[in-house]
Simulated assay, not measured.
Amino acid sequence: MKVAVLGAGAIGAYVGAALCRAGVEVHLVARGPHLAAMRKSGVIVHSPRGDWVAHPHATDDPAEIGPVDHVFLGLKANAYAAARDMVAPLLHEKTTLIAAQNGIPWWYFHKLKGQYEDHRIESVDPGGAVTAALPLERAIGCVVYAATEIESPGVVQHLEGTRFSIGEPDGSISTRCTEFADAMAAGGLKCPVEPDLRNDIWVKLMGNIAFNPISALTRATMAGICRHPGTRGIVAQMMEETVDVARRVGANPQISVERRLAGAERAGEHKTSTLQDLERGRPMELDVLITACVELADLTGAEAPTLRTIAAVADLLSENVA
């Protein structure tokens, strides 16, 4: 098996290192000091489960790699539309695109039976630009439950979790999914193939949709947001409204709001990725989180008043920091 990791940051390098440890031919696509460090010393993983080093090939040019069996997308979703030229050299007839993104993916309604089948979500796939870059028939979904960060160039700190749930848009347990899952397991990661990954997407989104924009607006950590009675109440309401939207499009996330809040609170003084992006002057990944959910609320007739309010304020913040 040959795998390319496009966007080998904290999560991408961690996955690539694990697959390399399993004997997979792995190619990491990265840039800057992180790329230079991985070329020199490999990927160094520090983890509560034990430290280790892997030495996959690393480059900034996908054309050096050529066609692969699977492309693991470690990019932020707001970079997908611009990734077409990076992805193209990596494709052969059956190459899959495994999208490890937060929020609602561009493939969400692809092969989803019902009244919304093949509906395109404009905030996620503006003008069809993401579908043009990442063809729907190649898409495999991925929900990431692991937490990692770049400790220094070439060094990944694994904080917690090893689960990367994957699934086909049509819900089948495909050979292409199971072969990738087996390789991930051989590298020490959990990679269940889910018959309905969309429920996992909504469970994770319940947290991201609330904590990410609120953290950017308040500069607070996840635990800080939970401790404050006012913001805790806002988060709970946003989660309730998110579940309502999920059910209107046929999903049924099986977790209570209180349990989801408790899980987020256990993360402690953790800054969300959106707050980290804001502090670093990077574009915030909010379109696939709260903007997409508001769009689906419009589509299905959900009221979602709290989601709409936070989305509007967060959008203004995005405009002011752009």
Rank of each mutant, 00 (worst) to 15 (best):
C293H: 08
D200Y: 03
A304M: 04
A236Q: 13
A267P: 01
N199C: 15
P195A: 07
P253Q: 09
E241A: 15
L278K: 03
R266G: 12
H270Q: 12
Q276M: 11
M239P: 00
N199S: 15
I201L: 11
A297V: 07
V249Y: 10
E295V: 10
L197H: 00
V288H: 07
M222Y: 03
V294T: 12
D277Y: 01
R259N: 15
V249W: 09
L205Q: 06
G263A: 11
L261G: 04
R198W: 02
I255R: 15
P283T: 13
V193C: 09
A251R: 01
D277W: 00
L286R: 03
G224F: 08
G233R: 09
L296E: 06
I225N: 05
V235H: 05
G207D: 04
A262W: 14
E279Y: 11
R227A: 12
S256R: 09
M206E: 12
E194Q: 13
E303A: 14
N252V: 01
D200M: 02
G263M: 15
R227E: 09
T300W: 05
Q276V: 12
S256G: 15
F211L: 08
G301I: 14
M222F: 05
K204L: 10
V257T: 10
E241W: 08
A216W: 00
Q237L: 14
G268S: 08
Q276K: 14
W202F: 15
P253R: 08
A236V: 13
E279W: 11
P213D: 04
V203D: 06
R232Y: 06
I214E: 01
N208V: 08
C191T: 04
P305Q: 11
K190F: 03
I201D: 01
G230I: 07
D287P: 00
I214K: 04
K271N: 05
M238V: 08
T242N: 03
L299Q: 01
E265M: 12
A220N: 04
A186H: 00
D298N: 13
Q254T: 05
T306H: 10
A210R: 03
G281Q: 03
G233T: 10
M206T: 07
A292Q: 07
D298T: 07
R247C: 13
Q276W: 04
K271E: 12
P229K: 08
A223P: 05
W202E: 14
G301A: 12
T242Q: 02
A297H: 02
E295H: 11
G263Y: 12
G188F: 00
N252T: 06
A264Y: 06
R282E: 13
A220P: 05
R227L: 06
E269V: 02
M222I: 10
A220R: 05
Q254E: 13
G268P: 13
N212C: 08
A262D: 15
A216R: 00
F211P: 00
R232V: 01
T272W: 13
A302G: 02
N208L: 06
N199M: 13
E265R: 12
L261P: 06
G187Q: 02
T221N: 07
R232A: 09
K190Q: 13
T218Q: 06
G187V: 01
K271W: 07
